[in-house]
Amino acid sequence: MSLNISIDGKTCTCESGEFLLEVARRNGFYIPTLCAHESLSEQGCCRVCIVEIVSGERSQIVVSCVYPVERAIEVLTNSEKVKALRGMTLALLQKLAPASSLIAGMCKAYGAPELPRLEARADDDTCILCGLCVKACAQLGTGAIAAVNRGIEKKIATPYDQPSATCIGCASCAQVCPTGSIVVKQDAQERSIWGRTFTLLACDRCGVILDTTEAVAYAATLRDAPPEHLCPDCRKQQVAQAFVGVYGK
């Protein structure tokens, strides 16, 4: 079922059940986000992508990334209320991740108040506890990291803060991290992440780095096939050559 909604005065068409953030983006409205990721399921926890929904006298603040549009609504993406709440939320995030340049930039861009009275958690921290890394790792099926403890003690870690036996060093967690908080050290032979060092595997033909030995082996178990030691390009060439061998003359 199609619906017409109003975003900052502009009429936008969407399907019932579509998330508001997607509708807004499609129609050219920029709403800042941190914990939203197109390929990872809904979270709605950073609370930065808020918008105001007005219907008559009533107004409601909702998180656009997980808010399904189900009726004709009037949306304000940048009302005074939104600005104030988003500013304070970003200011709180900055106290959590004072070393993050992304958060610092957003604070500046969205007029977050400076709150010298509040103490930062640790000067060098960049993690905003958005949980995307945990989601990515879980989605992959490895589940090597998790949100440990709860409330104000919450952190992202491996069990007992020890190098994880299940981690395959694929660095998917680092790729989805919005603040670049997960430390990955890599040279031509090795990659270190979450306290463990992995040997990197290179393409048998061209030598380009594929992934860690563990990640290549893990991908193979998912496909139920022997590990692939060729990069995508070389693999294509190999297939092409095989075809040439069969059909070519």
């Binding site: 879980a138 589940g143 990291i145 998790a146 949100a147 440990v148 403890n149 994880s164």
Partner: peptide, 25 residues
């Protein structure tokens, strides 16, 4: 004790780290 998580993981399939998270939650 530490082996708990590995044992439960083998039994029900939930990753060790997720079980550890439950234990701290």
């Amino acid at each position: 004790p530490q082996p708990v998580f590995e044992v439960i993981h083998r039994h029900i399939g939930t990753p060790v780290a997720h079980l550890y998270a439950l234990a701290t939650f």
